[in-house]
Design a protein around this nucleic acid. Structure first.
Length: 491
RNA sequence: GUCCCCUUCGUCUAGAGGCCUAGGACUCCAGGUUUUCAUCCUGGCAACAGGGGUUCGACUCCCCUAGGGGACGCCA
């Protein structure tokens, strides 16, 4: 049987390195055996889905040189490839489970569930659904449904026993059912949860190998149960190691640039990034480290994936990117540089800002350096300000980094509005509030207009610079904790 | 806390019982080439988490401990 693999990103933010990493291996597994690689958009979270994210994820994969045979843009025989367009499919399957007694309607409110979990935690038990609606009488359920009462569909889970399954990298894994919650399958808004949708689609789309991040291992019992109850064969499971921050936590934007856009903006070559990603948890049989994607596709062997989670090391990526850059012939080097510098019409957008401030062409370069390349390395003294204390400056940086996540689209006016709102909340003058941002973004107390600068640099690069500034200022653990607590509160 | 996964130089890794005096790469250090710098070349520092087994023989197999990570949502 032909191999069919997929990548299933959810369009809830900017394209993530982890998505590219998992895509790379799925792509390789399919390509090297003449199978098919599929992109499926898992937009089942109506609240968190961002319409333009799908486009940027596809663009990012494209940029990296990963291509797919079936997907939301490419079409294919098993479409649609966007889960929000398959709602009736999931609904139908969930109802099948209800009829067979494998799932049930649940009318519990989120508030009640929260209370239950809090109580369980307080009593030292594992939080989980308490079975409140498990045995409601059929006619009572029918009546409540007829009245249109809000409800979800949950799956039944055995109370005892263990779930056994095989992971291609780790062998047999056993997870006791006591650890498996009665997972919601259909949410109150009618959308399926990941767990239902992924199983239904993987089967309907003929997926033969599920290759995904290690964070899903503990969900396999739920999926296993669903495959069994539908009477379907479960695809082969391959859980890839998780990419990590230098501090060994799961790779996250709080600590690292995780957006593919960042690497694109910073001037990494897609083939270098892809090559580097391929050496995370995998190696060529001859230990060669520099290889093209064609060579990778040729040599790929899932059996050579190591299960230990690798740290994403930018230093080594830098070295590798340098190798690629230097091996270009000069003509191509110039072409690639021009394509990068002019990317997104960077130069065009820059021109009017620079023109007003220019007396001689030689003024230009020092003025725009931070927009075209890395800004000056920062020093804590750069942030010295007559009215702002260090604490306040850190808070401004932190708030800005957080608030900018919500600015969509990434444009000047939205950034301006976000800053104005934050400045008001902190009761600071706009000029004072903006000062640390100028320094963090440009490396100087004054620069080209801040909002235009940030718009030009892009979300990822801006975030990276704000984070770097906080590092330079040396945010203490205690302060970070306080700020993160603050970040969880709205406003 | 419960469950699961993982564990070779600081980092990425090679190693599928004797080939290991544990190899390569990044970083770092020292030399060399280069008018500077970078590149490049040469050399160096640096690891099998700990303890028990199994075996004639363990980095490799098994167990325990420790450490790290992940999951415990009407998020994916």
């Amino acid at each position: 049987m032909a191999v069919r693999t997929r990548i299933a990103p959810s369009p809830t933010g900017d394209p993530h390195l982890g998505t590219a990493y998992v895509a790379l291996f799925n792509w390789a597994l399919a390509r090297q055996s003449g199978g098919a690689f599929i992109v499926r958009i898992e937009d089942t979270d109506a609240a968190r889905s961002i319409p333009e994210a799908e486009r940027s994820i596809l663009d990012a994969l494209n940029w990296l040189g990963i291509d797919w045979d079936e997907g939301p843009d490419a079409g294919g025989p098993f479409g649609p490839y966007r889960q929000s367009e398959r709602l009736d499919v999931y609904r139908g399957h969930a109802e099948r489970l209800v009829e067979a007694g494998h799932a049930f309607h649940c009318f519990c409110t989120p508030e009640r569930l929260e209370r239950v979990r809090a109580a369980q935690r307080a009593a030292g038990e594992n939080p989980g659904y308490d079975g409140h609606c498990l045995n409601l009488a059929a006619d009572a359920v029918a009546e409540r449904l007829r009245r249109g009462e809000a409800h979800v569909i949950r799956m039944r889970v055995p109370e005892e026993g263990v779930c056994r399954f095989r992971d291609a990298l780790r062998g047999e894994i056993e997870i006791p059912y006591s650890q498996v919650d009665m997972q919601v399958l259909i949410k109150a808004d009618g959308y399926p949860t990941y767990h239902l949708a992924v199983v239904v689609d993987d089967h309907l789309m003929g997926i033969t190998h599920i290759m995904r991040g290690e964070e899903w291992i503990s969900s396999v019992p739920k999926h296993r149960l669903l495959f069994d109850r539908f009477g379907w064969e479960m695809p082969e499971m391959i859980h890839l190691p998780l990419l990590r921050n230098p501090d060994r936590s799961k790779l996250s934007k709080r600590r690292n640039p995780t957006g593919i856009e960042y690497y694109r903006e910073a001037g990494y070559l897609p083939e270098a990034l892809l090559n580097y990603l391929a050496t995370m948890g995998w190696s060529m049989p001859d230990e060669r480290e520099i290889f093209s994607s064609a060579e990778f596709l040729e040599a790929f062997d899932a059996g050579r994936i190591v299960p230990g989670a690798p740290v994403f090391d930018i230093e080594k990526l830098n070295w590798m990117n340098g190798q690629y850059l230097r091996q270009l012939d000069t003509g191509e080097f110039v072409e690639r540089f021009k394509a990068w510098a002019g990317g997104g019409d960077r130069l065009g957008a820059l021109a009017p800002l620079v023109q007003e401030r220019t007396e001689r062409f030689s003024d230009i370069a020092p003025r725009v350096d931070y927009l075209l390349g890395d800004r000056q390395p920062l020093h804590p003294d750069d942030f010295a300000h007559k009215r702002l204390e260090r604490e306040t400056i850190v808070e401004i940086l932190f708030r800005a980094a957080r608030d900018f996540d919500g600015v969509r689209p990434w444009e000047r006016d939205g950034l301006h509005a976000a800053c104005r709102a934050s400045a008001e909340r902190l009761q600071l003058r706009m000029g004072d509030f903006l000062f640390p941002l100028f320094v963090a973004v440009s490396g100087r107390p004054v620069a080209l207009p801040l909002f235009d600068s940030m718009a030009l640099l892009g979300r990822e690069t801006t975030r990276a610079r704000l984070r770097d500034a906080m590092d330079v200022l040396g945010v203490s653990g205690k302060q970070l904790k306080r700020l993160e607590k603050l970040a969880r509160e709205p406003g």
